[in-house]
Nucleic acid binder design. Structure first.
Lengths: 338, 338
DNA sequence: TTGAAAGCGTTACCAC
DNA sequence: GTGGTAACGCTTTCAA
């Protein structure tokens, strides 16, 4: 436990018999350093095992080579895949990721962002709990380094944005179900406070408008944040009198999908038979389920990769832009005629 | 983009008309600071919107209140749940998590650990690619702050350890299958370079030894790291002539489970009917699968929580210890007589 | 209780 | 090309 004193650039200077500034130059590949100097310094470094202190470097240079990442739920498969891709890309470029859980409320998110600022991160990846909150918007605005929003759409905010085109996928799915004769379709999804939900609702509603059917029941059910919530809501829907019960369901988000499936399986209802079902997000294990569930899918890792690329471009001084990634509706065994 | 100069403790001192040291004392709740001083400083802080610079603090105090976390795969459900729990617990205690992907090889892991050291993290959570590598052992040893190993068991290393008792769960599962008449059971799992695999093999082999059956084929198949590998290996096994084909399979790890299920479903083989199957790790969606797959389950979030608690105890100066968390075999529809 | 000043380990400017 | 030195923003003695 004896805290042996740290080996500093000073020690290297002494051992090599040169000035600290020269040692520093060697490390930063400064143009004007003689070969002999480089050799002496490198020998000394090897001899005493010096490693630069990144904290001191940060204080001096004002850059930490650390980027903050805040999401709501790391155990969510989408965020897991995304994080994995981001960590790889960013670390290749010499950046580390500092992670925080979004507390789930605006005040909390705001505090987190300020925390990141105090840690002096060079940039921020953000999937905030809401993208309509003025408090959050303010703290993002106060943060003077690059920001990339992950499927969040604050207005009047200079930031990079990566979007998934949920609307188009959802619209295709809904149109297909309508074409199959469904009139009462339930879209069960998360809070309207964030973009993905709003986009899903939009695609859903647009499909109904477009097809001009009468008696269509297109009431998106939002505010279902968790697996257990989704399970309960599904039960409620399935227990409705037959005339009011939806003949098809569309889920929004991975948690909701699991909850809906859990409920159906509890109630011994078979999707594709007792009702039609479209999962609003793809999951690897959906492939082993029988019947095969229709999905609106997209590439999660690509999302992370794209966000990282965008971030690196911002970090190198380019202008923020918005990139929208496609989603694709895949009809499988559970898109059936009424 | 005009980088307005940072508001420092110095500015506060000037505005409040006091010394910087006094401002510092107010912030660190030093006992000897008069109420009037506190008021003046707080007013000044509010007036100019000062927020302490954590990097400068770190350099001065030698502590970053940042803990490193290295795992192989954030998209793995287990690590996701674990990470989530850790981030919560640690951040409650005022610590942030800096994350890195394990490159998957010893040299890479070693470099990452040195990187963490340069970033001066206060401690390290580690799920290394191997726990038999001397290179990795050395870099962990060179790291002078607390370390908690996540289901990794380096010998001769002072570190906290959190283990899952895979052996017991696997042993129960294997015994059950043997009792059901299975003699040729395939355990398909990851690399033997890490503890979970070794423990699973141990439990598996112990069950065979203990039951003293003759002609038992107990050859664990290790070195299957990914979903696609598992799928290929399963295909190979299922295509074996009937006399050599296993009548039961046990998977080790979440990726393997998915791969095996994918293959079975491709080959139109039904677990519980065409062969018995035990998933060596639980997953939330296993509950919606029919037939219901037998599993060896454990509490993932508890794992993260326990690791965080252990870490905090180390951080407060307590001695490292090893905590082993239970696993539980749950026979469901896919543990069937031969 | 308060203030002055040293120093944490770097980098970058300025002489030489 | 190299060396000295002043910061970076903070905490922590040490005096007063």
């Amino acid at each position: 436990m004896a805290d042996l004193p740290r080996v500093t650039i000073h020690d290297v200077a002494i051992v090599a018999g040169v000035a600290v500034s020269s040692v520093s130059r060697v490390f930063s590949n400064h143009p004007s350093v003689s070969p002999s100097m480089r050799l002496r310094v490198e020998a000394a470094v090897k001899k005493i095992g010096y490693q630069p202190d990144l904290v001191a470097q940060s204080l001096r240079t004002g850059t930490t080579r650390t980027v903050g990442l805040m999401v709501r739920d790391f155990s969510n498969f989408f965020y897991g895949e995304m994080t994995k891709a981001m960590v790889s890309s960013m670390s290749e470029a010499g950046y580390n990721l500092l992670i925080m859980n979004s507390p789930g409320d605006a005040e909390g998110d705001s505090k987190m962002i300020e925390m990141f600022a105090q840690k002096r991160v060079d940039a921020l990846f953000l999937a905030t709990a809401s993208d309509k909150s003025e408090v959050i918007r303010k703290s993002i605005n106060a943060f003077k380094n690059p920001v990339v929003l992950l499927d969040r759409d604050f207005s009047h905010l200079v930031a990079g944005r990566v979007f998934a085109d949920h609307a188009t996928g959802l619209q295709s799915a809904t149109k297909d179900l309508i074409a199959l004769g469904h009139r009462n379709i339930a879209l069960v999804t998360g809070t309207a406070g964030i973009r993905p939900t709003r986009e899903r609702c939009k695609g859903f509603n647009d499909a109904f408008k477009e097809s001009k059917i009468k008696n269509g029941v297109a009431a998106p059910i939002t505010g279902i944040p968790s697996t257990s919530n989704a399970r309960a809501k599904t039960k409620e829907l399935m227990n409705l009198p037959k005339s009011k019960r939806p003949t098809a369901m569309i889920t929004g988000g991975v948690d909701v999908t699991i909850g809906v499936l859990e409920c159906l399986s509890e109630m011994e209802l078979t999707p594709g038979q007792d009702l039609s079902l479209v999962a609003g997000d793809d999951l690897p294990w959906l492939r082993v389920l029988r019947p095969r569930i229709s999905t609106v899918s997209r590439d999660y890792q690509l999302f992370g990769l794209t966000a990282a690329d965008l971030m690196l471009s911002l970090l190198s001084g380019e202008k923020p832009k918005t990139i929208t990634l496609p989603t694709r509706y895949e009809a499988r065994d559970t898109s059936r005629p009424v």
